[in-house]
Write a protein that binds this DNA or RNA. Structure first.
Length: 215
DNA sequence: CTCCCGATAT
DNA sequence: ATATCAGGAG
């Protein structure tokens, strides 16, 4: 298991060198669009989501716009994303409670955000961090995989345990940047199927990297 | 835990 | 053919 010192002095330093300007790759122009984009991104790549939201955000500007069309039409508009029936239903519910309970605006507090349909802890963390500039570490598939391979947390840890460990071992002012750097690292180098351990600057301290470089 | 699910990479 | 993709709800 990596120590807090190793994480701060080696992992975070290398991550910053590799991805100095890591950022949210879901295209959006306001908190509402960001929330919809993150909701759509479940079990789907950012590239696909951006392809769909390019047209979606032209057609639907407000919660009222999503409520104005039959659900079948919304389903067709997001079909290529996958999980489209669940997501369409959640968008409808989310828009309705936005209007009825939140004055038509995306709430800024995570406790409020998770009350919205289709918004869990991970999505809420992305919205608070990216849209409202509040420090948070959203643990998605990449953050989880990278944290476990490097040995920052244990293999059996739940996503909540991973998040707690990261918050404990990383200075709060670096939470949001680190979150994005872990995602870039996981997406482009430490990939699920074929991690690039042979060119990874962290391989010398990575449990999984050492194991993979032997074979 | 299972289910939701199309697109893409391997 | 199978694994994976910025997960969440029941």
């Amino acid at each position: 298991m990596l120590t807090k010192k190793q994480i701060e002095e080696e992992v975070l330093v290398e991550m910053e060198k590799m991805f100095p300007d890591a950022h949210c790759e879901l295209t959006h122009e306001n908190p509402f669009e960001l929330t919809i984009a993150v909701l759509l991104s479940a079990q789907c790549t950012d590239v696909l989501v951006n392809k769909v939201t390019k047209n979606l955000f032209k057609k639907y500007k407000s919660p009222e716009d999503y409520l104005a069309v039959p659900i079948e039409e919304l389903e067709q508009d997001i079909k290529s994303i996958g999980l489209y029936r669940t997501k369409a239903k959640n968008i409808k519910k989310l828009c309705q409670s936005l209007i009825e309970e939140f004055g038509g605006e995306i709430p800024k507090e995570r406790d409020q955000l998770v009350l919205l349909a289709g918004v869990g802890r991970k999505t809420a963390n992305v919205v608070t961090s990216v849209a409202f500039n509040e420090p948070a570490i959203a643990v998605d598939t990449h953050v989880e995989r990278v944290s476990k391979r490097l040995g920052i947390c244990r293999w059996k840890d739940s996503v909540l345990e991973v998040e707690k460990t990261l918050m404990r071992k990383i200075p709060k002012q670096l939470w949001s940047d680190t979150h994005h750097r872990f995602i870039f690292f996981g997406r482009y180098h430490c990939k699920a199927q074929s991690p690039q351990c042979h060119v990874c600057p962290l391989a010398h301290l990575c449990r999984e990297g050492k194991k993979r470089l032997k074979s």
